[in-house]
Every structure is written in structure tokens, then in C-alpha cells.
Design a protein around this nucleic acid. Structure first.
Lengths: 222, 222
DNA sequence: ACCTGAACACCGTTCAAGT
DNA sequence: ACCTGAACACCGTTCAAGT
């Protein structure tokens, strides 16, 4: 648990910094959601006037970009290079999943803001390196990286949506499907228990297995 | 091209409707971006007082939900049932890609808003139906649907991000990589031309092929 | 049932003034 | 170089009043 409410304390405060501002923004988003983030609220948390923020950040969009960058930079890319390349591919996608779980309410910010710093390219570098070590040519390596990235992003996006859909329903969510037209949705109704079951971990690994297995049986140039 | 600027005309106007409000919101987002959407702007476009909107839509979030629902409901799900199931799986994912391309600036709204109407379940119904016809059991069918959805979502999310990263650079974007540390990013730098090349269609089909091929070699119960 | 204007509590950002 | 308060042009939404 981080302590961000210095506002009340009157003693000497640490210097205002872009890093401190980004950190306060992340904390605020995680506590109250991205809608609650405003320059005024962030300034309040830091016990500072709103306009002071603008000495370290050009505008709100740049602050959100800083949030996205900080979170992506927090990815743990240490997958032992001794592992086979498929294991490293899995570790890379799981590393993204990890930061997504550590900062669930910041993910929409990550999804919608460009990463400007070179730290955003570190996961790409790892992905390209492992694809090359597997013997794929450059063009294929880029496509593999993009397919893995698409799945990493989409799996988290879907999971967030699924949580919002089911987790505030009592029980297994069966009543969600009670009103559906049985002629139009026979499969959805028949599979209601499976659809209501909430096991994101298994869902995630299932799709990751599909992708990695497909990569393994892809023709290689080397 | 739709005509939304009735504002100036003084004659009898069509009745204010939830559908007309959603339509105006979609037009505004596509023309000026999601940030430009406000209840006041929408009301202005329809030549109506702000508060009139609230007779048909409880609040702004519900309006955005309506936008997401309308766009998802616009998916073309007519994949000839004579096709093999892999073809229908491809058609389904491509149908999502199609609406994403028809409403590029609305996609972030779609990604971040729950679909409340049953129309949002129609793609799921199709996906479950084709997985079952392929001989998968119910639990596997649900996981297949989720993997396909994750890829469909993520591929579009990635593509939007890639466009924002490269399409405003002159030439092939090589100068984007000029400042990178060669020791930290050898592969990114070596593959700069491939990374700068912008061929989302091929990227998308590459990942889709991976997934569908993996599905085809999955053990089936029937 | 539907529409409306005024009002309230917020926003992001510019500007001029301070140290 | 950094901080600040006042001001401007916006927001979403409540409320009371109209038809």
C-alpha cells in the first residue's frame, strides 16, 4: 500500500517531479478509476496548486502517456535465456498479463496511449530476438511479434469486459440468460454454465497454447 | 455521407429519439474523435436543448453504451453455412474487423463499454455454433470463442496503436529508430524497415491463420 | 410524456504575477 | 526555474417550470 495523501502534512515536502506526478496519477486511477483522474485531483493529492503540475507535464494527455509508459516499463522481461524459445514467448505474453493484473484500472489508459519512450520497445526487442533465435526470417519475426502482441492485448481487454459483465451478478449469472430467445441463442443458453464460469487464467493459457503451438509447426528458414 | 447538421433548419424536425441521439453521437465521434463528444455537442447537432437528451438516455455513459451496441449490432454475420467451420471462423473474426474499419474512432468506445442488449451475444452464438459443428465439446467451444474474440479485439487495438505511431512520420519512419541504443535494440534496429512497413491486412491474416490452423489440429470429441 | 433554461459543482488550460 | 490564483470556456447533471 503506497501513501499518497501528503496533502494534510505541513512540513517540508519532496520536490515536485514528473515521476511523483505520474505515480500519484496511477494511484488515483487504481483507487477511483480513470474517470476520477483530473489535474486538480492529482494536484490535491500532492498538496500543490493545479498549475504547478504544468511545470513538469505539458498537459493531461502527456500525463496519461506517462502513466502508460511507466506501467509498460514495469514489465518483468527476465525470462531465462536458457529456456527454449517457445517458453520465452509464453513468458513474454505472461509478463504483460502480470502488469495488467497489477494495474487493472490503468489498462484502458495503456491501451489508448502511445508509448513514446524507448522502454516501450523493450518487449518488442525481446519478441524479435526470440523469433530470430527460433530460425524465422525478419519479416516473419515481425508478424509473430504482432500476433503475440494482439493476443496479449486482446486477452486482457476481453477479461476486463467479462469481469464487468459477470462479477456483479449473484450466483453463477444464470439469470443473465433467462430472458434470451431460445430460437436465436440455443448455444449460448445451452452453454450458460460454461459462459458464466469465471476462470480467466485457463482461458488465457488456452489461447496462448493455440498460438504457440501454431508457431512451433510453422516452416522456418533456418 | 450522412447529413446531421439539421441545427440551422427551422421547419418541423423528426421526433427526438434514442436512435437519432446514438446516430448523432457516432457521427460526431467519427468526425471529431471521442474527446469531442459531449451531451451539449450532441444536443447542438440535433437542434435541441441539452436536457432534452435526458428524456431518452439516462446519462452520458448510457449513450456511449448505445454507441457500442449499435456498432456491434452492425456486424455482418452472414457467413454461408455451407462453408467449412474454419471458413466460418475466419469470416466471423473478419466481420469484427470490418466494423472496426467502418467506425475507427468509435472503437475505443466499443472496447470500453459493456454491450447490454442481446444483439451483443449474436457473434458469440455464431462462434459457439461453429465450434460445436466442428465437434468440440461445450467447454472447449467456449474457450475457442474467447480466444477468437481476444485476437479480434487485440488485432484491432494493436492496429490503431500502430497507425498512431507511424502514419504521421514522413517516409518509412526510419528516423524513429535512429536515436535507439544499438546495444539494447539490435533486432528492432535491424528490422526497422519491416517494422515501419504498414500492411495491417497481412498482419491480421497471419495471426488469424495461426489461430485457425491451431484449432484444426486440436483433438475433437466428436 | 416530453421539452426547456438556470444553476451547481466540476473540468483543462491561458495568463499575468510572484519568488 | 518553479510556483501560484484568477479567469475563461467548457463539462455532466439536478431541479423547477413549462407544454
Amino acid at each position: 500500500m503506497t501513501r499518497t495523501a501528503d496533502s494534510g502534512r505541513a512540513g517540508r515536502r519532496p520536490a515536485l517531479t514528473r515521476a511523483r506526478i505520474v505515480h500519484a496519477a496511477i494511484g488515483l486511477i487504481e483507487r477511483e478509476g480513470a474517470d476520477a483522474l483530473s489535474m486538480r485531483r492529482v494536484a490535491g493529492e500532492l498538496g500543490v496548486a493545479v498549475m504547478s503540475l504544468y511545470n513538469h507535464v505539458p498537459n493531461k494527455d502527456a500525463l496519461l502517456q506517462g502513466v502508460a509508459e511507466h506501467i509498460v516499463a514495469g514489465m518483468d522481461l527476465d525470462c531465462g535465456p536458457d529456456e527454449p524459445w517457445t517458453g520465452r514467448a509464453r513468458a513474454l505474453v505472461r509478463a504483460f498479463r502480470k502488469v495488467a493484473h497489477d494495474h487493472p484500472r490503468c489498462m484502458n489508459v495503456v491501451f489508448t496511449h502511445r508509448i513514446g519512450t524507448s522502454a516501450g520497445l523493450r518487449p518488442a526487442e525481446r519478441a524479435l530476438a526470440l523469433a530470430e533465435s527460433a530460425g524465422f526470417d525478419g519479416e516473419t519475426s515481425v508478424r509473430i511479434m504482432r500476433a503475440l502482441l494482439a493476443y496479449a492485448l486482446g486477452a486482457q481487454l476481453r477479461e476486463i469486459g467479462a469481469v464487468r459483465k459477470f462479477d456483479r451478478l449473484p450466483g453463477d449469472g444464470a439469470e443473465e440468460f433467462a430472458r434470451l430467445d431460445p430460437d436465436e441463442f440455443p448455444h449460448v443458453i445451452a452453454l450458460a454454465p460454461q459462459l458464466a464460469r469465471h476462470d480467466p487464467e485457463t482461458d488465457f493459457e488456452f489461447g496462448l497454447d493455440l498460438l504457440v503451438n501454431a508457431l512451433e509447426s510453422l516452416p522456418r528458414s533456418r
